[in-house]
C-alpha cells in the first residue's frame, strides 16, 4: 500500500489538525455526493476507500486518544447529515434545521456545523450569534470559500459598508460617448465640415 501521508498529500510531521483538514478536503472532493460530477464514480469510490484507509492508519499509528481509530466515520456520517440540513435550510424549514443541528453532539461539530448554525441564525435575524459562528467556521477551515464569503459579507456590513444606494443605471456609459461622437460627426458632415476625418 502507498505511504498514507502521500495519499493525503501531507508531510509526515503534520499536526493532527492538518491531517484532519486534509482528510476533510479530500472527502469533500471524492465523497459520495460529488461522485459523478466530473469524476468517474468508480474511481471516486476507490479513491475514497484509499483515503479512509490512509487516514485510519495515520490516526492508529499516532495512537490518537480522542476518537479512536475510526474517528473519521463521524466526519463521514456528518457529511450526509449536513446535506439533509442544507436541504432543509434551502427549503426554508429553519426550525427543523436548527433542531437537527442542535442534535449533533459538541464533540462532532466541525467548521461546516458552525457555518450552517450561523446560516440558520442569520435567517432568523440573530445576527450577532450568526457572526460568531461564521467566524468560528472560518477559523476552523480558513481555506473554505463558502464560509469566507459569508463571514466577509457580514464583516463588511459591520463596519457600515453595506449598500446604501441602489445601483443607478442612468448616466453616461462608454457606448453613450461613442454614439455622441458619431452623431456629432454626422451633423458636422451635413453642414460641410468633418468632426472625425477617418469616417
Amino acid at each position: 500500500m502507498n505511504n498514507p501521508y502521500e495519499v493525503l498529500g501531507i508531510p509526515e510531521y503534520a499536526t493532527e489538525e492538518q491531517i484532519k483538514s486534509a482528510y476533510r478536503e479530500l472527502a469533500r472532493k471524492y465523497g459520495d455526493e460529488n461522485a459523478g460530477a466530473g469524476i468517474p464514480a468508480q474511481f471516486a469510490h476507490r479513491k475514497m476507500q484509499e483515503i479512509n484507509e490512509a487516514y485510519d492508519q495515520i490516526i492508529t499509528n499516532r495512537g490518537a486518544s480522542s476518537g479512536g481509530p475510526r474517528a473519521q466515520s463521524a466526519y463521514y456520517n456528518g457529511y450526509s447529515d449536513y446535506r439533509d440540513i442544507r436541504e432543509k435550510i434551502n427549503s426554508g424549514r429553519i426550525e427543523d434545521a436548527q433542531t437537527l443541528l442542535d442534535g449533533i453532539p459538541p464533540s462532532a461539530r466541525d467548521a461546516q456545523w458552525y457555518f450552517l448554525k450561523g446560516n440558520v441564525q442569520d435567517r432568523r435575524g440573530w445576527l450577532e450569534e450568526a457572526f460568531k459562528n461564521y467566524s468560528t467556521a472560518c477559523n476552523m477551515d480558513p481555506g473554505n470559500p463558502e464560509y469566507r464569503a459569508a463571514f466577509d459579507a457580514m464583516n463588511r456590513s459591520r463596519s457600515g459598508g453595506y449598500a446604501t444606494q441602489k445601483q443607478n443605471d442612468t448616466g453616461c456609459s462608454g457606448c453613450d460617448i461613442c454614439t455622441g461622437l458619431l452623431c456629432t460627426d454626422c451633423c458636422c458632415e451635413c453642414m460641410g465640415g468633418d468632426f472625425i476625418p477617418c469616417c
Binding site: L127, F131, R158, Y162
Partner: peptide, 10 residues
C-alpha cells in the same frame, strides 16, 4: 455600532 450596522445592512 457593529451590531447596529449589521442589522441595518440586513
Amino acid at each position: 455600532a457593529a451590531v447596529l450596522y449589521t442589522t441595518a445592512g440586513g
